[in-house]
Design a protein around this nucleic acid. Structure first.
Lengths: 164, 164
DNA sequence: TTATATTGTTAGCCGGACTAACGCAACGGG
DNA sequence: CCCGTTGCGTTAGTCCGGCTAACAATATAA
């Protein structure tokens, strides 16, 4: 029927969100995060990357080669999901996966030169995206914002759920 | 832990997140929102409710009976998902769904007395949850936080797809 | 030794955001 | 008056991220 254009409602009437919802911090947080995530995902997609790629590469550069379990703990990516991420990174030549001779259960993940280059590309890309997301805020406000988030996060961060 | 790993010697179980990630606003935002969402969802579950329920009830109280499409626009719940929400609310006797005699395409959704009571219960519940989420912040910081979120949201909220 | 824990891996669940399509009703021209 | 277009409610289904469960291989502890 109406094939082609997705049905587009307008705001002619200007139905507004109720005040109760407009001031709910948790709601604002959720919506903002959703939007931010979208921008990040889209942005990284342009570089054939995903957020987790960045997390893993950044971790590797900061603390050197690591097992997958270790990466999982550091990045908070579930180890079940991590395997796919490592696969992707390995496919693109950004990391190498090798069995650990010292502990044969483990794989040692090492970042390659290309990986390092990619990381720095992502660094720039991400900086631009962050800048976009935070566009309406001044530098000081951005600092405030980040700091508040950090406080919230680590306050509640204690109740971290590791897999059983 | 037992990590006798050669070079990546780290402390007792406390693998830290790399600084690059720790300071990424988008990441902090995502993690915080995730955590907040979890608290809200769990909290509301205790009252056999979901976030959407609150959004709909609040909207109804603020602007009176409305069609589903109208509710969809106001709450930003997709109209396809809204039908389930209305079903749930109707099942619990919080709203009534009746065909609109004036426009027979429409349903008129009306909040019942029970619905109003439930809304106020949720008001209190949610206030407690918000308080929990924002626990580490002072009153002033909470205001700041909320205001910053609101700014971010409506800056980007306008340009991007509203309800397309 | 036997028991328990850790690691990498596969598979799958669940819920939220979102799209597509359909039948029906309304509205506005011609 | 019919007709194309638009809005409405509804069903179904996609996609993706967080998360659980189970398993084989290996390591460690009792």
């Amino acid at each position: 029927m109406n094939s082609g254009a997705p049905d587009t409602a307008d705001l002619s009437g200007g139905e507004a969100t109720p005040a109760r919802l407009r001031n709910l911090p948790t709601r604002l947080l959720a919506l903002t995060a959703l939007h931010s995530d979208r921008l990040v995902t889209e942005g990284l997609a342009g570089a054939d990357a995903r957020q987790w790629h960045y997390a893993v590469l950044a971790t590797l550069e900061e603390s050197g080669p690591a097992s997958q379990a270790e990466l999982s703990r550091r990045t908070r990516i579930y180890r079940s999901d991590l395997v796919a991420v490592i696969n992707e990174l390995a496919d693109r030549g950004f990391v190498e996966r090798a069995p650990d001779p010292a502990d044969r259960r483990r794989n040692v993940i090492t970042m390659t030169g290309q990986g390092r280059r990619q990381l720095h590309r992502l660094d720039e890309l991400l900086a631009a995206i962050e800048d976009d997301v935070l566009a309406p805020l001044t530098r000081i406000e951005r600092r405030q914002f980040t700091e508040l988030l950090a406080r919230l996060l680590d306050h509640h961060g204690r109740s971290r759920r590791r897999d059983a």
